[in-house]
Simulated assay, not measured.
Amino acid sequence: MREIVFDTETTGLSPQEGHRLVEIGCVEIVNRVPTGQTFHAYINPERSMPSEAEAVHGLSAIFLSDKPCFHLVAEELIAFLGDSPLVAHNATFDFAFLNWELAQCGHPSVAMTRMIDTLAIARTRHPGAKHSLDALCSRYGVDRSQRVKHGALLDAELLAQVYVELCGGRQIGFMLAAENADAAISAEAVAVRNAAPLIVRPPRPHHASAAELERHAAFIQKLVDPLWAQVPATA
């Protein structure tokens, strides 16, 4: 099963208040295993950057001024997303910005039925604990040493590892390893069977010889009160 883990960075908290998408990062996973295929883009928001937002992700208006506007990367992004389920942390936030940007350039919205929210999963699995991406990385031993500031692609890569752990992580790996080992053993057995020459041996005689029958009769005569002698003869 193909899924896309993604993250966004923005100029603020709500597109309805005039805020825009400034970065999106996507990571492809198949059967909960990262494939190495990614999509990443910085986006010119065509507006100023609030200092509070810049402090979070470090993306200034000057840095973004020569980056493409969303409508220029939309087709490539849509192609990468395909029809796969989309995994995000606090996914309603990311979906709101993604769908707002898609609507502004005439593309259909991404159906909310495709949304998988790792924040909701974490709250169910670890009630009462901290559920930030940093906290979940610490809980599952995911290395976040490179995460000085928020970055969409790096955060998506970290979230992909966290998502796998939330879904059973290491057990999934064990199952895949066992399946691969079984497949390898089966393939080897087939190869050995096909390579070995077929040897046909003549059947061995199983009837007793005259001498063997004579020795058996002598042995029977030595038995004292055998069981079969106690059974009444039937007509």
Rank of each mutant, 00 (worst) to 15 (best):
G18W: 03
E9L: 01
L72H: 14
L64V: 01
R20Y: 02
A55M: 10
N31F: 07
V56F: 08
V27M: 11
R20F: 01
R32L: 15
L59I: 01
I24H: 05
S65F: 09
T11A: 01
G12R: 01
N44L: 06
R47K: 11
V73R: 05
N31G: 12
V33Y: 15
Q16R: 09
T38I: 12
T35E: 13
P34G: 13
I78Y: 09
I24Y: 05
H19A: 00
M49A: 00
L21M: 08
L59D: 05
E46P: 05
A61C: 09
V33D: 15
V30H: 10
E52S: 09
L77F: 03
H40D: 14
I78R: 13
N31D: 15
R32S: 15
P15H: 01
R32P: 15
V22D: 01
I4P: 09
G12V: 01
V73G: 03
G12N: 07
L64W: 07
T11K: 00
C26R: 01
H57V: 04
H19E: 00
S51F: 10
T10L: 03
V27Q: 12
E46W: 05
P68E: 05
E52L: 08
V33F: 13
V73C: 08
E54I: 06
H40C: 11
F63Y: 15
G36E: 09
I29M: 11
G25A: 08
E9T: 01
S60G: 10
P68G: 07
Q37H: 15
P45L: 00
F39H: 06
E23Q: 11
E3M: 15
E76C: 07
H40A: 11
H19D: 03
F63V: 02
V73L: 04
E23F: 05
S60E: 12
T38N: 14
P15A: 04
P68D: 08
T10M: 04
G25W: 03
L72F: 07
I62Y: 15
D7T: 08
T10V: 10
P45D: 00
R20T: 03
Y42H: 13
H40I: 08
P34V: 09
I4Q: 11
L64S: 04
F6L: 14
I4A: 08
H40W: 13
V27K: 10
D66S: 12
P45G: 01
P15Q: 02
E52H: 11
S48E: 11
P45E: 02
R32I: 14
I78N: 14
D7V: 04
L21P: 05
E52K: 05
N31M: 12
Q16Y: 09
M49W: 02
A53M: 03
D7S: 08
V27D: 10
L77M: 10
H40F: 14
I4M: 11
D7R: 09
P50E: 00
T10Y: 06
Y42W: 13
V73E: 04
Q37Y: 11
V27R: 10
I29S: 09
I78T: 14
N31T: 14
L72W: 09
F39R: 08
I29G: 07
G58M: 07
R32H: 15
H71V: 10
A53D: 03
T38Q: 14
P50C: 02
M49I: 04
I4V: 15
H19K: 01
M49R: 02
V22H: 05
